[in-house]
Simulated scan of single mutants.
Amino acid sequence: MERLPTGIPVLDRELDGGLPAGSVVALKADPASQSELFLNTFAGVRETLYLTTVRSAEAVEGGLSASAVETGDPVVEAVDGEDPIEDARERLPSIPDDGTVIVDSTEPLEDADPLRYRSLLTDLVARTNETDATAILHALKTGGEPSRNRLVTEQVADVVFDLRTVVTGTAIENRLAVPKFRGGAALEEPVKLKLTDTVSVDTSRDIA
């Protein structure tokens, strides 16, 4: 099966070259983390449709322009109508062949009726398979009760990236776990990352 690079070398090495074409990826992360670095990096690898459900399209475009990583020239569209599920569905035909679609973030869609949300994900899976694209679902951890359809997001996803950010008295530690990898091998242990203005390996030693 063809692998599509993520644009993050350490991750591509761990994943035997990247993500299988047609994959739906759930990127779980704390809202205060640097998870947008991952989205910006993914956007720079291939032609990208960036669907924003919370921030305005202008805010996303400004963040992409200011990013230190190469973000390419993604098409940014806001999913902000009265019916976000249908608004998102209408944009699925715009997912580029061999490209990437980013949904940032999933919460407003996950708040919808479960049957309608499952139907949207079914259409998303069909479109990514048809185009050999990659779908990135930015699924933020709220710290309280998860969104009503978060389990559905994780079950449908072919790959789950779980970014864990821990703030100590002296440092901020970021580890990326890949507990689920349909069509490949999940990572046996989290990868320690350094998230500044780019994504790199954290080579600092853990002190017990």
Rank of each mutant, 00 (worst) to 15 (best):
R3H: 10
L4P: 00
T6M: 08
T6S: 14
G7P: 13
G7V: 03
I8M: 02
E14A: 15
D16K: 15
D16V: 07
G18V: 08
L19P: 10
P20R: 01
V25A: 09
A26E: 00
A26Y: 03
P31D: 11
A32V: 03
E36K: 14
E36V: 06
E36R: 15
L37Q: 13
L37T: 09
F38H: 07
L39H: 00
T41D: 04
F42I: 07
A43P: 06
V45D: 08
L51I: 14
T52S: 11
T52L: 11
T52C: 14
V54S: 06
R55K: 08
A59W: 01
E61I: 01
G62Y: 02
G62A: 13
L64D: 01
A68P: 02
D73F: 10
V75I: 09
V76P: 07
E77M: 11
A78C: 02
V79Y: 07
V79R: 09
I85M: 08
D87R: 09
I95Y: 10
D97R: 13
G99K: 01
G99H: 01
V101L: 11
I102L: 06
P108H: 02
P108Q: 04
P108W: 03
D113W: 11
D113M: 07
Y117Q: 07
L120V: 01
L120Q: 10
L121D: 00
D123W: 14
D123M: 08
L124H: 06
L124T: 00
R127Q: 15
T131K: 15
D132N: 15
I136F: 02
L137Q: 09
H138R: 06
A139I: 00
L140Q: 13
G144F: 11
S147M: 05
R148M: 14
L151I: 10
L151M: 09
E154L: 11
Q155P: 00
V156R: 03
F161R: 05
L163N: 06
L163E: 12
R164C: 00
R164W: 01
T165E: 08
V167T: 14
G169V: 02
T170E: 12
T170C: 00
A171M: 00
I172R: 15
I172E: 11
V178I: 14
V178M: 12
K180A: 10
F181M: 15
F181H: 10
A185F: 12
E188D: 14
E189M: 04
V191R: 07
V191W: 05
L193K: 09
L195N: 08
L195D: 13
D197S: 13
T203L: 12
S204C: 00
R205N: 10
